[in-house]
Amino acid sequence: MFFALAFLSLLIERFTGYPNWLFARIGHPVTWVGSFIALLDKKWNRESDDFAKRKVMGMTALIVLLVVTIFLASLVQSVLFLLPLGLLFVAIVCAALPAQKSLEQHVEAVAVALETEGLEGGRKAVSMIVGRDPDQLDEAAVCRAAIESLAENFSDGIVAPAFWIGMLGLPGGAAYKAINTADSMIGHRNKRYEAFGKASAKLDDLVNLPASRLTGYLFVVAAVFVKDASPKRALNAIKRDAHHHRSPNAGWPEAALAGALGYALAGPRSYDGQMIEARFMGRGGRRDLTAADIRRALKLTRIADGLLIALFGCLVLVIGR
């Protein structure tokens, strides 16, 4: 049943996205979770407390967040399953969790901006999806930033929620999004969040691990269907580069995509005026990327997305026999 939920939710979100009119009226589950996290941060992350206490309070906040999220998601799922066509109604709710359509739109917007507005337009568009300093980016760097964001967010914004829906239903998918949102808000290595967000960052690394590996292999298979892409290069890049990434998970999708398409991604970059040293994913590949290369990466990702949907469809058929 949960594999069917993942399959249906991906299909629904692929074609409809999250409607703007619905967002205008009620917001989005991520915004609800974000508001709750902000409240916990305000109440429990006190600068006057020492490191150990802030660490404990961060763990407590994460537990409270997960208990509330899982309880509400379980309640919604239980009630909807009682209705005729309950599986479809739960799938419609689950469809709010993966972000296939919005990710594609945001990344494609960078390519469009570069083509129609030039470098300044590209910088502005890419600043919507990455945290690095856009003013420091030339055209090739804008393209690399967009493609890196595409690879990483395909893993944690699409494959991961679908995976956890498939494993644990709506409560699993909702819990994953709560953890991922907490990591993006408070899982930073800075003075305010080093202690309070430590538990969220560690748990996010753990729950993203299976999806990041699956994403890497989806890109390997997808490379078969893209002209001049190479499954062999993708596998080699995973083996050679993925474990050198600063993140224990992001290296898998970034290395696989870079290797498949012959790009060199990641490497040193600037955040908040500070240069961060990082290893390259897809070493030996091209760095001088253009808007056309963004579109090629989008093509690979669309195929990988189709493979993900097909995978859950096959699991439904196999288990349903």
Rank of each mutant, 00 (worst) to 15 (best):
Gly173Ala: 09
Trp164Cys: 00
Thr181Glu: 13
Gly169Arg: 00
Met167Asn: 09
Arg192Leu: 05
Met167Gln: 11
Phe196Tyr: 15
Arg192Asn: 13
Trp164Met: 00
Ile186His: 06
Lys191Thr: 15
Ala175His: 11
Ala195Met: 10
Leu168Ser: 14
Gly197Arg: 03
Ala175Cys: 12
Ala195Gln: 09
Met185Phe: 03
Tyr193Glu: 15
Gly172Ala: 10
Leu170Pro: 03
Ala174Met: 15
Gly197Thr: 14
Thr181Pro: 05
Asn190Phe: 01
Ala178Thr: 07
Arg189Ser: 11
Gly166Ile: 02
Arg192Gln: 13
His188Ser: 10
Glu194Ala: 11
Leu168Ala: 15
Gly173Phe: 01
Ile179His: 14
Ile165Leu: 07
Trp164Glu: 03
Phe196Arg: 06
Gly187Thr: 09
Gly173Cys: 09
His188Lys: 08
Ser200Asp: 10
Ile186Gln: 07
Ala175Lys: 08
Met185Tyr: 08
Leu168Ile: 05
Leu168Val: 07
Ile186Leu: 08
Gly197Leu: 02
Phe163Met: 07
Ala199Ile: 10
Ala199Arg: 08
Tyr176Val: 00
Gly187Ser: 08
Leu170Asp: 05
Lys191Trp: 12
Ser200Lys: 04
Met167Ile: 15
Ala182Cys: 07
Ala199Cys: 10
Trp164Leu: 01
Ala195Cys: 13
Arg189Trp: 02
Ala175Gly: 08
Arg192Cys: 07
Asp183Met: 00
Tyr193Thr: 13
Gly187Val: 03
His188Val: 04
Arg189Asn: 12
Ala182Tyr: 11
Pro171Ile: 06
Arg189Gly: 05
Lys191Ala: 13
Met185Ile: 09
Gly197Pro: 06
Ser184Arg: 11
Asn190Ile: 09
Ala195Pro: 05
Ala178Tyr: 07
Gly172Arg: 01
Gly197Ser: 10
Thr181Ser: 11
Trp164Val: 00
Ser200Gly: 10
Ile179Ser: 12
Phe163Lys: 02
Met185Glu: 13
Arg192Gly: 09
Ile179Leu: 09
Gly197Asn: 12
Ile186Cys: 07
Ser184Lys: 06
Tyr176Ala: 00
Lys198Cys: 11
Ala195Arg: 04
Pro171Phe: 02
Pro171Tyr: 06
Ile165Arg: 00
Tyr176His: 02
Thr181Lys: 04
Pro171Ala: 09
Ser184Phe: 03
Leu170Gln: 03
Arg192His: 14
Trp164Ser: 00
Asp183Val: 00
Thr181Ile: 06
Arg189His: 14
Ala182Phe: 05
Gly172Tyr: 04
Phe163Ala: 03
Pro171Cys: 02
Gly173Arg: 11
Ala174Thr: 03
Lys198His: 14
Tyr176Ser: 00
Lys198Phe: 05
Ala174Gly: 04
Ala175Ser: 12
Gly166Leu: 03
Ala178Phe: 06
Glu194Tyr: 04
Ala182His: 14
Ala199Asn: 05
Thr181Asp: 14
Arg192Ala: 11
Tyr176Ile: 01
Met185Pro: 11
